[in-house]
Design a protein around this nucleic acid. Sequence first.
DNA 1: TTTTATGTTTAGTAAATTAGTCGGGTTTTT
DNA 2: AAAAACCCGACTAATTTACTAAACATAAAA
Lengths: 140, 140
Amino acid sequence: MKLSAKGQYGVRAMVVLALNYRAGPMPIKEIAARENISSQYLEQIFLELRRADLISSVRGARGGYILARDPQEIKIGDIVRVLEGPIAPVDCVLEGSEEVCERTGDCLTRGVWEKLRDRITEVLDDISLEDMISTRKVSG
Amino acid sequence: MKLSAKGQYGVRAMVVLALNYRAGPMPIKEIAARENISSQYLEQIFLELRRADLISSVRGARGGYILARDPQEIKIGDIVRVLEGPIAPVDCVLEGSEEVCERTGDCLTRGVWEKLRDRITEVLDDISLEDMISTRKVSG
DNA sequence: TTTTATGTTTAGTAAATTAGTCGGGTTTTT
DNA sequence: AAAAACCCGACTAATTTACTAAACATAAAA
Ligand code: FES
Ligand code: FES
């Protein structure tokens, strides 16, 4: 039930991009240094995020990365899904796909995992980058 | 954000024990066969569950394992904590321990993970084995 | 009392995943 | 042209996961 380092790094880096949103592109090295992440590893993470259209890149000197849209339009769930795959506590209840498991129907555990998955996605899809940077306190 | 196979096996096996609760101890091989789990691996899982006092064992012929208390007294969260450790999406917000991370205070991501952890524990600590076996449908 | 059915425990291991590193690119600005 | 930046594929070390092996301990039944 843990996020991998990749997912955590991704979220932290995206928060930095959100803070820097109005100032234009930000070089990856600056982000990596600030967040203490290997810049080469962060490159891989940003590659995935760019392919998913969450960020865009500006090449050349004075280039860097910038959010692809406003911070309030990007939810934590969007980031997590790109870096960790579909959200589900167990494979039987993967988002999107119905009926993965042959035991569905008489399975007594499925209900719990579905409920858990739904609560998790509720939280992650409710909070945007804007929410994270604008309030210190996420009440709840 | 996935449960390991160990956690899933543990929950499934505990459900079987709950179904069998009034019939006395149940041999591990029977459970393993029924749930398609390696019986030697299940032994290790049951060892942890026994040490955590969720089940008790009866040795010798006609022995086996039985829930240590009534099915409604055992929550899914109890099982998951034993087999997967403290519930937390990231190490910074481990249950129980305050202040693990030096960045606490100015950390913008912490709030999200705390909220997520709380929702997860709410679900897992709300549902008991009795709930799982008595109703096919866990509404919610 | 012998046999058999069970649980107990430690150690080892193969496969998969994770978390990177390496080393070269290409593109754009200065 | 040079520097600053992104782009990308391949490789690797460390860790975790999911078991397997093997011997041992205990209790009930025959
Ligand atoms: S094990 Fe797949 S639905 Fe329950
Ligand atoms: S990284 Fe530890 S509290 Fe945020």
